[in-house]
């Protein structure tokens, strides 16, 4: 209730359902990028990542709407042509770069820009919608270099950022909504994301230093499973 949520975009039905879950709980949602007709109650701000002054412009736009943020949710899942190509099919290197810009650099730039507003909030929770296709351990695909490499890079960055910001009270969530999984749909997957993002993880009250699950950066999915990096 009464939290302020920033989303890097509301583009898919999963994103829309997630935004609606926060709105139903009485929170405010500010989203970057184009207006999503399914979520008219959200406040939309422009963001042109990686352009000159993009971070400052985003900060000014969001600071014009709120004095603080509690949740930062990266929903980036941009896809580009040629992602179905295997290494023997002739890769599209510039599209791999596009994927890296959209799925790695853009959310990091948004987070860097909005950190002062998150510092001023009480939630301090940073959530990233990702995919186990970026798991070096588990990826079973023979194509999809762009999105997998982009999200794998993001996972590495998140661990570095977590090491920096956890002492300041920040906690992290990485969530795989499992698009294409028959046991979930955008509504149930977003419901899972909502509880995973908003619920605190276990801290053993007697041994806080030794058993604090929030210390671990993990990726969990819409079925409640944890994926190795």
């Amino acid at each position: 209730m009464d939290k302020v949520v920033f989303m890097t975009g509301i583009a898919t039905s999963f994103d829309a359902e997630l935004a609606l879950a926060f709105l139903r709980a009485g929170d405010r949602v500010i989203a970057a990028g184009p207006h999503c007709p399914a979520v008219p109650q959200a406040v939309y701000v422009p963001f042109a990542p990686l352009c000159e002054g993009a971070g400052e412009a985003l900060y000014q736009a969001v600071a014009g709407k709120t004095r603080s943020l509690d949740y930062f949710i990266d929903t980036s899942s941009a896809h580009f042509a040629g992602e179905d190509r295997r290494i023997t099919d002739g890769l599209c290197p510039e599209e791999i770069i596009q994927s890296f810009r959209a799925n790695t650099l853009a959310p990091i730039q948004a987070l860097e820009a909005l950190l002062p507003l998150l510092d001023a909030g009480t939630g301090k929770r940073l959530a990233f919608i990702s995919t186990h296709d970026a798991s070096v351990n588990w990826c079973g695909n023979t194509a999809g270099y762009g999105p997998s490499m982009a999200k794998a890079a993001l996972h590495n960055i998140l661990q570095v950022i977590k090491n920096k910001l956890f002492p300041d009270g920040y906690t992290f969530r990485v969530y795989d909504p499992l698009p294409g999984e028959s046991r979930v749909n955008p509504v149930t997957s977003a419901a899972g994301a909502y509880t995973y993002i908003t619920r605190d993880r276990a801290i053993d009250g007697h041994q806080i230093e030794r058993r604090n699950d929030e210390k671990r950066l993990v990726m969990r999915d819409a079925l409640g499973r944890e994926w190795p990096w």
Binding site: F100, A134, V136, S148, A153, N156
Partner: peptide
């Protein structure tokens, strides 16, 4: 650091 995780995947 991020480039080497991307390389691994």
């Amino acid at each position: 650091t991020m480039t080497k995780t991307a390389l691994n995947v």
